[in-house]
Design a protein around this nucleic acid. Sequence first.
DNA 1: ACAAGAGGTCGAACCGGTTCGACATCGGGA
DNA 2: TCCCGATGTCGAACCGGTTCGACCTCTTGT
Lengths: 337, 337
Amino acid sequence: MNIGEIAKRAGVSRSTVSYALSGKRPVSTATAQRINDVIDELGYRPNASARALAEGRTRTFGLVIPPASARLTDVQLAFVASVVEAAAAHDHDVLLSPSGGDHDRSFERIVTGRRVDGVILMEILLQDPRVERLTSAGLPFVTIGHVEDPAASWWVDVDYAGLITRCVRHLADLGHSDVVLINRSDELVAAGYGPALRATTAFAETARECGITAHTVCCADEPAAGQACFEEIRTRWPEVTAAVTINEAALPGVQRALHRAGLDVPRDFSLTGVIADRLAEDFHPPLTAADVPAGDMARLAVGLLLEQIGDASATPRHSMLAPPITLRSSTGARRRA
Amino acid sequence: MNIGEIAKRAGVSRSTVSYALSGKRPVSTATAQRINDVIDELGYRPNASARALAEGRTRTFGLVIPPASARLTDVQLAFVASVVEAAAAHDHDVLLSPSGGDHDRSFERIVTGRRVDGVILMEILLQDPRVERLTSAGLPFVTIGHVEDPAASWWVDVDYAGLITRCVRHLADLGHSDVVLINRSDELVAAGYGPALRATTAFAETARECGITAHTVCCADEPAAGQACFEEIRTRWPEVTAAVTINEAALPGVQRALHRAGLDVPRDFSLTGVIADRLAEDFHPPLTAADVPAGDMARLAVGLLLEQIGDASATPRHSMLAPPITLRSSTGARRRA
DNA sequence: ACAAGAGGTCGAACCGGTTCGACATCGGGA
DNA sequence: TCCCGATGTCGAACCGGTTCGACCTCTTGT
């Protein structure tokens, strides 16, 4: 069922069918009617590859995800699903590409085979070879998280620095004088993962401003690590009375450790940070935390990408999201010792 | 940079370049060398759309996922990532399509636009309109979970019935005489979700065989629901001393409820079921459970799909996985009252 | 010495769309 | 009345690959 078959049955030329479908040139209502009838009868849909070849655009985005080995967190998952839905809302499809590890071939296939009109990159590092690859290939892309020069590229990010600052101030206001940041993994920090770095810096600076003592620990993205990590905190710095975290995956373990130590939240210990609403609400007690708005980020990223694809010479734009910190019940005044 | 440009610079015809690349006809080593030099110099890669159009195959799979609104579980996520990796191992890409809700357009685009060579369908129902759509479109597909007639189609599934049977026998052997099945949500059961249905049946039958009392409850895929659900179990059937579950998402809530009720696992209460290893090990204490081998399922599904694409007239094959039940420490002998 | 066959290359057709330029028809304004 | 522009349609070229048939040039076997 190709366009020629439709044209033949409707008694018109192939180009007329094409114009009837696209509306790029006027077609008489009588002809259009006949064409539509034939199309409905045969259930014809244009071949996507042929259209892509002719138009020079695929109506497809690439989404580069972390490899399966590094298990995706809940939020990343929500983000993937949201990107697909946002793209679908604009009649676009999403091609997935794992990256890192030995998956460069897949990434390369996407970049170089003109399979996609643009790319969304998750889990970006401050210096990321994939960014350079895309730039040199001249393929439009949007990153989740930003690179060194914020004005030079298109990105969407969460203002980790600002949020962490507000978390620390909040704890300081409640009287806490010894706090700890439960960061993401050592490897991510070493690789130059932006959010982890910015969180570290903002945490230390704000603590200094507030005149309180701050420690930072890295923790792998797993419940077990969270538990071990929290136990280490208790032994190394028993005076700590509050924690800030951006490590969602470690939370169940932290919860377990809190419980084992017989610490009541928020009576004995306060906990806050940047945690997706869903997880924050599942915690016991519900966490006072800033949301990670995966859905919003996905929609913004898709919007930026479309804009960039539409006008290749547009100047880069970005969105820095600063979700509100929702007061729930995991933070409280420090108890006098 | 198209194939014509390469041909011109290498001083040969376009077809010769094509043959040099594909190896489908012999090319002299001297010519091949010249062509490869030019290709390396210009960084040429064939245009995927043009190739797809000419070959009649896209080297792309469609993966139909549940909509983002129904939040994906951890296992589903692992499955998606594994499918992408398995496909990449065969130099294929994966196009994502949400389904259900109002995302039929996306599904239709994939099915009808010849964008993919085949489709993998997740979360299949016993009677699924998407299966009929794919069948009538003549597009190869593999389902995760099977439909009514097991021999009629290609699928990969976990033998929930067999595993649940073994779980129940295990509990019966330990002396438990009142057990409960924590199933997945009401809606899924009502919609005809196979695993939930088969689990229910196998659970009831095996209990009867073993001469023990069995109850079944449905539970939404959320921690909060798990907690509520377990509390309800305690009030309605206080005599119950063990539970079997296939609802991974509810586990954190079940854990909380167990703890609140002051029940020690496995001393006061036994818990087992079909739960991904990662989650089973995160539980406290680690769960005796059968794994949901997402990675294996993904690789098998991709393999079946490739086989089917390669030979459209092949008779349908399938794989029923029966992972071993790993004995950890969440089940124990029933205490005498 | 010659036919057969293998190796190597080319031109042309084809995949299924989009788009450009040309042409025919018709109505309205000068 | 004549010319112009809008409307409607067509044929052909093009997007960038693959593949088929044909052709030429060597080997090789008889």
